[in-house]
Design a binder for these strands. Structure first.
Lengths: 239, 239
DNA sequence: CGCATGCTTGATTTCCGTCAAGCATAGTGG
DNA sequence: CCACTATGCTTGACGGAAATCAAGCATGCG
């Protein structure tokens, strides 16, 4: 059930059998979410964190005029709101973009992990810092990159993150999002996302059609986005 | 020496006398930095973290065309690269924007804290999560807000963060940065920053001249930026 | 079949970037 | 003490990337 989560952890650090057992016993119930359902509301105290097992979720912040900015996409295996353990409430919503399945981990159980397993605690701390690194890369996209480069970076990032949990290969991956969703990640309108996707397709770099991303020229796509995967911390180390 | 750091911690959580002692004894040497000096280079393994005591630093990422995006500003009391403790290397540079003084904390000493002080560990974990929350708010600015709103948000954020460590009051604060620095935070050119600052000045909201920010109408400034300080987590709670 | 949702393309507008030049200030050195 | 220079601020003219507005098309579902 939490195999993808363990795969994500073990891609960056070590997890002993004892620690794995601690994680497994920390999980309580499992829930299903419909597409467009709010999973964690903003500004309300939380007593548990949520482990995404299946589907795609996002973090987003609303603006008064109805626009929204998605600040991170989440893939299966991600602890979507682990930061609520120390923050207590979230400064943003968590939304299911597609039908999702997720597991609850009560903060009480996380507290026990931090009391008894310092190394695992540091690995989870690393996890939230990795979210921070992704935020920073998105800041660069939003602040300085062209629409073309933003798209190239986003789809390159997802290929790696989904690959770690076995949901992407060299040819591409399933991504059941709309062009509007992508626009809300990148600070672009759906119209401009559409035009720019056509450009990338015509240049033979990638396609994004009917919920599937096809990567035609990975090096070319990386170049188009000035993509450097080091911000994803892809080495197994002692954290 | 680390009074501002303790003030920042205690604004959000509790620090016992014993924990305070652990922090104090974790600090090793102190260093000075000149303006424009790199404090922590990107992509190089670190064996210590850096506590900013005086001056302003920033995190930034370079682009191939020479542009840079500042992803966060740091004020005295901030642990500018606490995340290197679990990340091992940083995905960005840390730069002194003004002459600075900073203290070193070897990762070995942080390791001891995480082994012996779970509550303090969670408070430091909170600290890096707070950086993440600031990143998210900046993503909203960079992705969706007008130049005017971006400036209003940034200067409002700094007034609060500097106020916590006694470096800002209701009238304003010293901020010895250039208009180009501000532009690199907000994804704007120095030219457009200049024009927009004039607008905010003419509207009687704020001034930014010769290294000093004067807040003339705080509610108006907050409104102009749709500023909501809850993302700064300004309550003292058990973390 | 009818409707909703999302994709696609064109025409026009706007915010901000680029380029350029002048000005102010402060620090330097003859 | 006063050129001289560097750095940063200010303003104007022009250009461009993406937004907005609008309409038609494709797809899927009840």
């Amino acid at each position: 059930m939490i195999e993808r989560h363990l795969a994500k952890l073990r891609a960056r650090g070590q997890v002993s059998a004892e620690e794995e057992q601690a994680i497994r016993s920390a999980v309580s119930e499992t829930r299903e979410y419909a597409a467009d359902q709010i999973v964690v509301p903003a500004f309300q105290d939380q007593d548990h964190s949520t482990l995404l097992l299946d589907g795609f979720m996002c973090r987003f912040k609303d603006m008064r005029n109805g626009q929204r900015q998605i600040t991170e996409l989440h893939v299966p295996g991600d602890f979507v709101d682990l930061h609520s353990f120390t923050l207590k409430y979230l400064d943003h919503e968590i939304l299911a973009l597609t039908p999702c399945r997720a597991a609850f981990v009560p903060h009480q159980n996380l507290q026990r992990i931090t009391d008894d397993f310092p190394r695992l605690t540091r690995l989870y701390w690393f996890g939230t810092n990795l979210d921070g690194a992704i935020h920073r890369e998105w800041e660069v996209s939003l602040g300085r990159r062209s629409a073309r480069a933003r798209l190239a970076t986003l789809f390159s990032e997802l290929q790696i993150r989904l690959g770690i949990v076995g949901l992407a290969d060299d040819t591409g991956y399933d991504l059941p999002l709309t062009q509007s969703d992508v626009g809300e990640c990148l600070g672009l309108t759906n119209v401009h996302v559409n035009r720019t996707l056509r450009e990338l397709r015509e240049d033979g770099l990638m396609e994004f059609q009917s919920g599937r991303v096809t990567v035609l020229d990975r090096p070319g796509l990386w170049r188009a986005g000035e993509f450097d995967p080091r911000y994803l911390y892809l080495q197994q180390r002692t954290r």
